[in-house]
Design a protein around this nucleic acid. Structure first.
Length: 659
RNA sequence: GCCGACGUAGCUCAGGGGUAGAGCAACUGAUUCGUAAUCAGUAGGUCCGCGGUUCAAUUCCGCGCGUCGGCACCA
């Protein structure tokens, strides 16, 4: 007897093992048709797996969130079958479901190109139409290896060889000819996949994610339960493209990049205004939170980087500069090569410890919060560079808190609170907090890690941010080698997430660089160092701000806050006066006195994403009024100049500055 | 760094073995107009760089650089 408990609590008993398909058919013909898989005691299984023991079973259909992963995984298999049908001799490797879709990695002498995708996609649809049954088989391990070697699937043979011997070798047969090694589960047939999928791109990818191994060709696709979902996803992609910070940065004349300074940004006046506003804002928040701002050297002697440990571990990412006057002889070598080596700082921590070490620190000095908008250089691999998001010169909103062990929880809690205020001021309502736990390779004792991890947990709990609304999550193995860390991932206007903030404990650097304070007991003690950032780097964060707001910045951040537009040249003098008045009240204002129609001006400045248009014509000049038009709206608001000035000045105030 | 695609006017892009074209922007002139494009004219290019093939290369080939999409990297 097998007793199956369904999600509604009802129990069905059978005198022999049944499959999910039998069960679905038993419940109703509609369900039998819609069934894709079963969830047995919470685990997804094939629909045709015989259930031999009493269990809780739910039938999974397309409506189920779990179905998406199945569909995507099947799409990957259908892709693989299509490719092998069209391009015999191509080896299959691995093809998982991923966020929003799937991919499959192939080994082929000629890599695939974008032009191959339509043909492959058409073949995939054909395979779906064929509705090939998908069946699981368990093979003998050695036979499987021999089989895959024989048919030339060397990657598959390698995979099987590396599977733990306790694992059964499960093979999924798709139709009568094609099969693939796979853990499963899968749909009962290719027809169940449906047609809401699309191949999106080709890319290179290393075998097993290892850059010393072969480069394979990866084909990416997206797959959904229905066309509507897919259409929504594609719309989101289009929206993301429209918001691309590189595009908006050019349209709004914020910055540019050029090959002569690869990976470093030329900030134009408007882009740098954005930066200055953000920096001013951050500085005020940090001042109020008890931080002390410092500025430290860009270049330090290699010896110092040796002492901090960076020279050994991080040198390949550092820009090294010889401390030497270049030769001025035409033909001679530029440098003799005898100079001492300096390096541009890739991070600020060692310099902060050096400041801490000046003079004798007492326990009364702690916690000491040292902040720097620190300009760092890292020689990132060329392929990693991306717009202003991943660059080689960047400025961190960095700070280090030197404190006693018993102050950690309080300091981390206060950091969480500060970060919350900053993100909300900058227009981000949602963010997730994650705790990255000890990695396999690490310094220190387990006891030390227990304590460190617990401190961070406790601080988040005290800050009241451990609930699901803050996406609390613990990530095993993701911590730095010297400490666990909290990560703060914010969600932007179109649902993408970005890790920005971080705080991590460090017991190692104070030790290496001999930072110490005198305790109440008169003895020398090691402070703990908390590395923390809220924005991460200004460059990247401004990129995120651009994409989040799609260039339509809140008034206080907008590079140009208002443009005064005239309707006829009779209003020119008055327009200048209006602009002067607004400027005198701290607003960033431009005028447009060109001999153009007001429609033209409104269009142009709207496209330029100026938040407020101040329109003045003969009427306004006579009554000393202004007509305000907000970006994104069509309404006009007629106000007296004085009132408009007051109102705009208040609205444009940097957050947190009124009280 | 690796795989692939791309690189033409300020921008978006078309073209193609016989030294280049559109729209927008710019400039000049006319127009003085009430909330998302007034009209006309003018000017603008080392077709990413270097080499090769060719009578002739921006076009074909090779190499380099950069950008883009991924991978790897992000102590």
């Amino acid at each position: 007897m097998v007793a199956i408990t369904l999600p509604d609590g009802s129990v069905r008993t059978y005198d022999r093992p049944v499959t999910g398909a039998d069960l679905a058919a038993d419940i109703g013909p509609g369900l039998a048709k819609a069934a894709l898989a079963v969830k047995v005691n919470g685990v997804l299984k094939d629909l045709l797996l015989p259930l031999t023991a009493d269990s809780k079973v739910a039938i999974v259909t397309k409506k189920d969130p779990d179905a998406l992963e199945l569909l995507r995984h099947d799409a990957a298999h259908v892709l693989a079958e299509a490719v092998q049908e069209l391009f015999p001799g191509t080896q299959v490797t691995i093809g998982p479901a991923i966020e929003n879709g799937f991919y499959y990695d192939f080994a082929r002498k000629e890599p695939f190109t974008l032009d191959d995708l339509p043909k492959i996609e058409a073949k995939m649809r054909e395979i779906v139409d064929r509705d090939e049954p998908i069946r699981r088989e368990v093979w003998d391990r050695n036979e499987a290896i021999t089989y895959f070697r024989k048919i030339g699937e060397l990657y598959k043979a390698e995979l099987i060889q590396d599977l733990p011997t306790s694992e059964p070798i499960s093979i999924y047969r798709q139709g009568d000819k094609w099969l693939d090694l796979c853990l499963g589960p899968h749909l009962p047939s290719t027809g169940k996949l449906g047609k809401a999928f699309k191949l999106t791109k080709v890319a290179g990818a290393y075998w097993r994610g290892d850059s010393t191994k072969a480069m394979l060709t990866r084909i990416y696709g997206t797959a959904w339960a229905d066309d509507k979902q897919m259409a929504e996803y594609l719309t989101m992609l289009e929206e993301a493209e429209k918001r691309d910070h590189r595009k908006i940065g050019q349209e709004m004349d914020l910055f540019h990049l050029q090959s002569e300074a690869q990976g470093s940004i030329f900030w134009h006046p408007k882009g740098y205004m954005l930066w200055r506003q953000l920096e001013t804002y951050m500085r005020r928040r940090l001042d109020a939170a008890g931080y002390q701002e410092v500025k430290t050297p860009q270049l330090m002697h290699a010896k110092q980087w040796e002492a901090s440990g960076h020279w050994g571990k991080y040198r390949e990412n550092m820009f090294v500069v010889p401390d030497e006057v270049p030769n001025t002889e035409e033909q001679g070598p530029v440098l003799s090569g005898k100079g001492e080596l300096l390096a541009l700082k890739p991070m600020n921590c060692p310099a902060h410890v050096l400041i801490f070490r000046q003079g004798i620190k007492s326990y009364r000095d702690l916690p000491l919060r040292m902040a720097e908008f620190g300009c760092c250089h890292r020689n990132e691999p060329h392929g990693a560079l991306h717009g202003i998001m991943r660059v080689r010169q960047f400025t961190q909103d960095d700070a280090h808190i030197f404190c006693r062990e018993d102050q950690i929880v309080d300091e981390v809690r206060m950091f969480c609170e500060l970060l919350d205020v900053v993100y909300k001021d900058l227009g981000f309502d949602r963010y997730a907090i994650k705790l990255a736990l000890r990695p396999e390779k690490r310094f220190g004792t387990d006891e030390m890690w227990d304590r460190a991890e617990n401190n961070l947990r406790e601080a988040v709990r005290l800050a009241g941010r451990m609930g699901p609304e803050y996406g609390w999550q613990e990530l095993p193995g993701e911590g730095a080698f010297y400490s666990p860390k909290l990560e703060f991932h914010l969600t932007d206007a179109i649902g993408r997430t970005w890790q920005c903030g971080t705080i991590q404990l460090d017991y190692v650097l104070p030790e290496r660089l001999d930072a110490a304070y005198v305790g109440e007991d008169g003895a020398k003690h090691r402070p703990v160092m908390l590395h923390r950032a809220i924005l991460g780097a200004f460059e990247r964060f401004i990129g995120i701000l651009i994409e989040h707001h799609a260039g339509k910045f809140p008034l206080w951040l907008a590079p140009v806050q208002a443009t005064v537009c005239t309707i006829t040249d009779e209003a020119d003098d008055y327009a200048d006066e209006v602009a002067a008045t607004l400027r005198a009240n701290g607003l960033r204002v431009e005028t447009d006195l060109r001999n153009e129609k007001i429609n033209y001006k409104v269009r142009e400045h709207s496209l330029a994403k100026v938040p407020v248009l101040v329109v003045v014509g003969k009427k306004e000049a006579e009554t000393r009024g202004v007509a305000l038009r907000r970006l994104g709206g069509q309404a006009q608001e007629i106000l007296a100049l004085d009132e408009a000035t007051d109102r705009l000045a208040k609205e444009a105030a940097i957050p947190g500055t009124q009280s």
